[in-house]
């Protein structure tokens, strides 16, 4: 006999103002159809900064981050047909791939002999992407407001919750490794992460209702 799992009342996935703009899924669909022109360019302008921010946070190296940025967008383009809207918003899908590749690069770096670098840390602002429509000052203001709202939601985390979450999310540490690093029992680490995630989940609901 098959057990049929029932979960009671779980809220259905709601369209997320912070995570999903209506055109995101269309861009992914266009890339899945093989569009390597305007759809890819718009997708890159939409998510390039976000991805680079995540990768830099994890790798702490601009040059290495740009190498990984290229890998990530190539992978996103290649895997666009596999994107499943039911499982993740486009933003979360992009962030997940970015985080995974950056953590892979970080692990690979730790295996490289000392002194061997992936690239120099020199930035050339003159070669930055031309500002697309989404980077106009008014759009930037909205993006900035949105970021501030997200930061306000994160500010509700206790310092212990934030620390544990950041070690898991940005450092890629397992719960046991976090427990070792912080000198805490494994159960305490899990409890902090769990409590932090619930805070974020509540914050997410508030953001969807209030962010433009």
């Amino acid at each position: 006999m098959f057990a049929i799992l029932t979960l009671g009342t779980v809220p259905p996935p709601r369209p997320a103002a912070v995570h999903e703009r209506s055109e995101d899924a269309e861009l992914v669909a266009a890339m899945a159809g093989g569009d390597s022109g305007s759809a890819l360019e718009r997708f890159y302008h939409r998510f390039g900064g976000l991805v680079l921010g995540v990768v830099q946070r994890i790798l702490a190296s601009r040059a290495e981050s740009e190498e990984v940025l290229q890998e990530i967008f190539f992978e996103l383009w290649r895997r666009a047909p596999q994107y499943d809207r039911e499982r993740a918003s486009v933003t979360t899908w992009v962030v997940t791939v970015a985080r995974s590749r950056a953590l892979d690069a970080r692990r690979a770096r730790s295996r490289r002999p000392a002194g061997q670098k992936a690239g120099g840390d020199v930035e050339d602002p003159a070669r930055a992407a031309p500002a697309p429509e989404s980077d106009r000052p008014d759009s930037q203001t909205v993006a900035s407001e949105r970021r501030e709202a997200v930061r306000a939601a994160l500010a509700r985390l206790s310092s212990e919750q934030r620390e544990a979450l950041e070690l898991a999310y940005f450092e890629g540490l397992s719960h046991s490794e976090i427990a070792d690093r912080l000198g805490l029992p494994l159960g305490t680490v899990k409890s902090r992460i769990l409590a932090g995630m619930k805070v974020l989940r509540v914050g997410l609901v508030g953001l969807e209702e209030n962010v433009p």
Partner: peptide, 30 residues
């Protein structure tokens, strides 16, 4: 229902990323 739950927690976790500064992504990478 579990898919919806996973999706919601995924969105919640990615707030960590959305709070970061967004540098301009260089055109040469594109």
């Amino acid at each position: 229902e579990v898919r919806a739950l996973v999706r919601e927690y995924g969105d919640a976790a990615s707030l960590m990323a959305l709070a970061l500064d967004e540098p301009v992504a260089p055109a040469r990478v594109l």
